[in-house]
């Protein structure tokens, strides 16, 4: 019986205690904010939407390789040595590769921050922007390359020409070497080591 009265009293009393606490909170300062109007500060190192500075990117593709979810797609073109533009990267070093394609699929990105740490030129960075919802997934596929299509075609052409030239030069060299070889072959028998080398 004493137990029963005690339980009933406890039930009543703890309800009163709880109501006192909630009543006190009723008049306390509220912690939520009206989101789009005022918002909590985001620290500058927050990892949100990625941003690539195309003038800094040297096309090393480390980010593409480290990305755990394969959301970065990079394609590069070799810079022709006698390019009239004499391209430079923004940090002053000489550009060796054009980056005609640098795409990030933000629908896939997991914001792990690995790409930003491997980048040798600090071209890819996380920004504090986090509101980029779109109505379709295609809009989340962002192309960062600053090269215009005409420029890409031009550079491709230049590279092709250069490569053709190079190839011709190589073929010339190979032919010369072959001629040399045939001359030497005619002169004397070759050792099996050099033979295997040439067959490669």
């Amino acid at each position: 019986m004493i137990e029963y009265i005690k339980n009933v009293w406890l039930g009543f009393w703890t309800v009163i205690v709880g109501m006192r606490i909630t009543l006190a909170h009723l008049f306390e300062k509220k912690v939520t904010v009206q989101y789009p109007d005022d918002r909590y500060p985001i620290p500058p190192n927050a990892r949100n939407k990625l941003y690539l500075d195309p003038t800094l990117c040297n096309g090393c593709t480390s980010c593409e390789r480290i990305c755990p979810v394969n959301c970065i797609k990079v394609e590069t073109l070799r810079v022709v040595p006698d390019d009239p533009e004499r391209p430079m990267i923004a940090d002053g070093s000489k550009r060796k590769l054009w980056v005609p394609v640098y795409d990030i699929d933000f629908a896939k990105c997991c914001f792990c921050g690995l790409c930003t740490t491997v980048c040798p030129t600090f071209a890819i960075k996380h920004t504090v922007e986090f509101e980029y919802s779109t109505y379709s997934r295609d809009e989340l596929y962002v192309r960062f390359s600053d090269m215009s299509p005409e420029k890409i075609i031009e550079k491709k052409k230049m590279l092709d020409e250069f490569q053709a030239k190079e190839k011709a030069a190589k073929a010339e060299a190979a032919r010369k070497a072959a001629e040399e070889k045939s001359k030497t072959d005619a002169k004397a028998e070759t050792s099996p080591v050099t033979e295997s080398k040439e067959s490669n």
């Binding site: 008049f27 300062k29 509220k30």
Partner: peptide, 13 residues
């Protein structure tokens, strides 16, 4: 509103 204020929220605004 009461539920929001008890929970230190602003509620519908």
């Amino acid at each position: 509103k009461i539920s929001a204020w008890i929970q230190e929220r602003l509620g519908p605004m």
